[in-house]
Structure formats: C-alpha cells, structure tokens
Amino acid sequence: MDSATSELPGFTPLGRDSANGLKIVIVGGFGVGKTTLVRSVSEIRPLNTEEVMTQAGVGIDETAGVATTKTTTTVAFDFGRISLNDRMVLYLFGAPGQERFWFLWDRLFAGTLGAVVLVDTRRMSDSWYAIDRLEHRGTPFVVAVNRFDDDPSVYSLTEIRQALALDPHVPLVQCDARIRSSGKHVLLSLADHLHALATARETTP
C-alpha cells in the first residue's frame, strides 16, 4: 500500500503542540476562484474530500402508501491550512454556495469563525443566496470581489455593495485570488471584522 506521504504529496504534519482547530469557509459560485484563494494562502496544497449526507424525508410509495425515505447526497469540498502559532491551526474550506448545498453546510461548517463570500461581478447573482443565508444564520462574513482580467465591467465597490444589498457594516474588498498577499488581505479583513465584533460585544454592558 501507498504510504501517507506518497498518497499525499505536500502533506506536512502539524506541530505536536497543535491543539486548537479553527475554520473559515470560502463560499461562492462555480469557478469564482475558491480553490485558487485557498491555494494561494494555504501552507499545504489544497486537499479534497467529501461528505455523505443522509436526509430522512417522507415520500409517497405507490404500493406501500406513505413511507419514510432516505436521500443520500455527496458533496465534495476542498480545504487548506494555516498554522497560526504553535497551538492554533486555521482550516480554510472552499465550498459551493448554491442553494442545494446548504443543508450540508449547516452541519459541515457549524462552528466556523466566519466566511468569505467570493464574488465575480459578471455573475453577481450567484452570491445572493449565500449572503442571504449567512445573514440569516448570523455568521459574520466579508465579501471579496475577485477581479478577473477579462472582466469588462468596471463596477465600483459602491455599485457592487448596492447590487448585493450589503449591510453597511459588512466589509467589501477586492482581490486577485491567485496572489498570496491579496488572499492574505482578504483573510485579514475577515479577522479584523470578527475581532471588532467580539470587542464590541464584550464592551457593551
């Protein structure tokens, strides 16, 4: 059999004191650059795996009448990793944001610190559902506009904020997901936002 290292080139073990796993989710439509963003900031090559979800439901069976049915759905997602210090390690999950994936999200990504919604201005409506859902869940998020070279539109951030009906307090940044410093900037704006929210909550009597 293959050893762990030959099956997973680029798999680097964590330090032995690592104890606190944290997670951030990067969500967006197909091809918006989720994997590219994960890759540009991750210390490991993005890995891919999947979760199988079984949902119980009630269906009508013509011969047996009303019966309980089970639907099984498989969702694939990729992830990367950033060791923040000796104890803390941050996992970045890239996941599709379409409506049909959300029941998986609720379970897979419970306990996430926050989310990055990645937007392509040529297909802005792809992110509407994700934004709605994150607002509804109360998961803090930032929106990052991934600027593609062949994008003819030159919407300003103000126009994009309007088009997405974004709350004024939600940070909106531009990025090039292929560039590490740009990806780092996106993560920092999320971390800043989270820190500000937590501080505000702690100082509110």
Binding site: L22, I82, S83, L84, N85, M88, L90, A110, G111, L113, R137, G138, T139, P140, K184, L187, L188, A191, D192, L194, H195, L197, A198, T199, R201, E202
Partner: peptide, 21 residues
Amino acid sequence: VARFRGSLPDSDLLKEVLDGL
C-alpha cells in the same frame, strides 16, 4: 469554538488569529 449558531469566540482568541495571519 462552540458549535452552536451565532457564537463568536472571545476577542483574545480572535486577536491570536489576527496576529497569526
């Protein structure tokens, strides 16, 4: 980090995240 909905960790932990990034 607790897994329940709407939970936000304390600012000390988030400060460590910021510093690490």
